[in-house]
Amino acid sequence: MNCNIAQQLTQHFLDNALSQAEARTLELHLEGCRDCRSYFIRLERTTLAVESLPRLAAPPDLYVRTMAAVAQSAAAPRQPQRRWADLGLMAFFALAGLLIALQSGPELADSLADLELADPFSLVDSLFVVAASLELSLLAGAALIFAAGCGTLARLIAWGQPSPAH
């Protein structure tokens, strides 16, 4: 075993992730390698030293200050501009939907009338035909772009508000 592997095994030993066989291999190497033996002891000693550092208590006023800040945050209305922005976004989507319905409704009715539907299956088929028509696709695409643009606008209105931490 070379020294690089011995040093890796030393790390795994400190992670409690060595098998018995690996531990035996490491032990044999350490018996014959002064550098790796030094590394092993230094690394273990370092780990123990970090673990034995005193744990400090929080200053007494941390709780008081934190809860005052929390109370202030709880009392403040939560992002009112964002709410307005969301409402605006919803309104734009509704408007876009309405426009589609108004534009495509009569065409749809005409198309359905032309097809002289006889049973539910042909109705479903005809709906697919109508939905796939170029005119309707263009209309829907335009409405989506319009809605996306409005959404961006609404987000811009909300921009500048603090966002919640992750």
């Binding site: 030094s38 002891i41 230094r42």
Partner: peptide
């Protein structure tokens, strides 16, 4: 970290290390 401590001259010289490593109590096997 152990490198920095070694540079800082934290006690644990090779003589002592050798002594400890030959009869290390926590290494299994």
């Amino acid at each position: 970290l152990q490198e920095k401590l070694r540079e800082a001259g934290i006690k644990g010289g090779d003589h002592e290390l050798q002594h400890r490593a030959t009869a290390h109590p926590t290494l299994p096997g």
